[in-house]
Design a protein around this nucleic acid. Structure first.
Lengths: 116, 116
DNA sequence: CATAATATGTCGTCGTGCGACATATCGTGC
DNA sequence: GCACGATATGTCGCACGACGACATATTATG
């Protein structure tokens, strides 16, 4: 019962990408905000560089896991920011990766947990 | 209460390395056997190439997470195999990585689990 | 006695995280 | 009015690691 068997080849995700996707679950956000969200979500352990961030965003867009739309801060003047939003595929990827991680932890605990 | 705070910088482990370390928990083994063990442990999802295997073994030795000793198959003739064994550091690394993964899953489930 | 499985190793390529660098806007305090 | 930090986006080159391809040799099996 593997929903969308074509998503398996994309796993495992890197820690950076998984945190970025998770940060988009509550709703759309933009690059810099995701950077800060990931820092909070990971309790300060994952500090994305902008190189990692924008490189990963580009790939996620190409793969169709997220979608982008342009937003104007104010009326039509001023800074232009880009908002990113999870696609259906993106949500399925997150679920698949979390399931994979749970299985991995189970294997590890079974082997390494209950013994000297 | 982070035992050995100096191990944190080594995380996250790659999937290949974590599975390789887990395969050594029950006891010493050699390269090719680890290759097959990982395949079984991962239920066929992780198929290490020998490039990955021996490259990773070299690094694990250099880092002192495993130790190597030479074994002679028979008396003193025939194929020479190398056995690898987890060190104390190696065991702590596994525990630290499993703990990290559990925390990661918890964050993911909290964000992505309990909502539409 | 050929063929598969076991066993170890190297090499080149590709993907990805990351630090450094480059720009520009916005808010706050002085 | 203006300096300065936070916000915001992006590029470039390096380093590390997984991987497939290739190379070899020994040990079982049919």
């Amino acid at each position: 019962m593997l929903a969308s068997p074509d998503i398996q080849p994309h796993l495992p995700l890197t820690e950076a990408v998984l945190f970025m996707l998770i940060s988009l679950v509550p709703g759309p956000s933009h690059g810099y905000a995701m950077l800060k969200d990931v820092e909070v979500l990971s309790e300060g352990r994952v500090l994305l560089s902008t190189g990692t961030l924008y490189g990963a965003l580009k790939r996620l867009l190409e793969q169709g896991w997220i979608a982008r739309y342009v937003e104007h801060d104010q009326a039509e003047r001023g800074r232009v920011t880009h908002s990113y939003e999870l696609t259906g595929i993106g949500r399925r990827i997150i679920q698949a990766e979390l399931a994979r991680l749970e299985a991995l932890v189970a294997v590890g605990r079974r082997a390494a947990g209950e013994r000297a």
